[in-house]
Design a protein around this nucleic acid. Structure first.
Lengths: 189, 189
DNA sequence: TTCAATATGGACTATATGGTCCGTAATAAC
DNA sequence: GTTATTACGGACCATATAGTCCATATTGAA
């Protein structure tokens, strides 16, 4: 009954996510983005509504795809090994690396944008739950001390992950950053 | 021999810092800022050069004033109490609070701006040194375990501070965040 | 085949942006 | 008081910005 869409919605959304992620929201111009993904303005406004709406959609998509993949990775193998894997990834970041998009949104936008803030919070809570599950499994398996507060330890791990990503952006010596991992892990033992 | 400047350079710089700090670099418009601090464009360009130059100057000023005050506060009283004070401040943050300007710059700009990155790194290192000193003093005084690696522990504390600030922006429940403090402190014992 | 509905290309708009320029005012040295 | 030097106000500029509009194209249903 109506003309079919010619572009791939999710492909365009992933392209936009990549730019918001790499450059931030304000620094990403709509014209530049539409040029990169090859979309006309009318198609864009018809499908996404506004730059801000697209940011929200990109944030949701990040949570559904990238963050979920990280969360699923936390379920693989032994809990301790999964947690080490998670932190090794972060410790390998350089200043230009694409660090967690939740952090980009939290720091650039969350203070003044409730819709962004709610999504970031939800994403962080999902990550926290995944850590909590991993910790609980590790406790049951005897890898971690059984008397630890799994939820508090999970929040602690999330905070350390984001703190270390900030230090990677600041280009703090990788050697120094890496030496925090044993300290972090010791809190679980 | 020449006309005198009518505005207070540092006062204007502090005003600009406040705006960059609250809203971020890209979201702060020059016209808006000049309106708020009551400065004409010619005076601005004569004194500060460009928006980017002013950002660098504001970042330097943040380090010299706000960050230095935090660092000096880490020297007051017992090391353990000073560290608790530092984290209590962070744990009191709400999403709209002005969290550390170094983090704002790191996340919004450091990936693509070497001049910002170098300054952020320097600021972070100054904070890290202050933590290291506090830890070393605490170790000497028997407040902390003497066998801990003071530098690694300092990096760990810095990372936790920034991670908790990110969680404050995300509006993660304050109760949860607060429960990480005993875990952090335990790493020192 | 007609028609209602949606998609597309791209011209267009209003405004905001960072930055420049210049005429004039104020200052201190001589 | 003259002069060299710098500050100031504000008009001005080129461009970038997010967003609108419309003529045309394409589709599936009736």
């Amino acid at each position: 009954m109506a003309r079919l869409r010619e572009f791939d919605y999710e492909q365009v959304l992933d392209g936009a996510l990549g730019l918001f992620w790499r450059d931030g929201y304000e620094a990403t111009s709509l014209d530049g983005m539409l040029g990169e993904v090859g979309l006309s303005k009318s198609s864009f406004y018809g499908a996404f509504g506004s730059k801000h709406d697209m940011l929200l959609a990109a944030l949701d998509r990040y949570i559904e795809t990238v963050l979920q993949a990280n969360i699923e990775d936390l379920r693989r193998g032994s809990p301790r090994a999964a947690i080490v894997r998670h932190f090794d990834k972060i410790l390998g970041f350089q200043p230009v690396s694409k660090t967690c998009f939740l952090q980009v949104c939290a720091v650039e936008l969350a203070a003044h944008d409730q819709l962004v803030r709610m999504r970031v919070r939800r994403g962080v809570e999902l990550l926290e739950e995944a850590f909590r599950d991993a910790i609980a499994r590790g406790q049951a398996a005897g890898e971690f001390a059984a008397d630890g507060d799994a939820r508090a330890l999970a929040t602690f791990l999330v905070a350390n992950g984001y703190g270390l990503q900030m230090l990677a952006r600041a280009n703090l010596a990788a050697d120094w950053r890496k030496k925090t991992l044993p300290i972090i892990l010791k809190a679980l033992e």
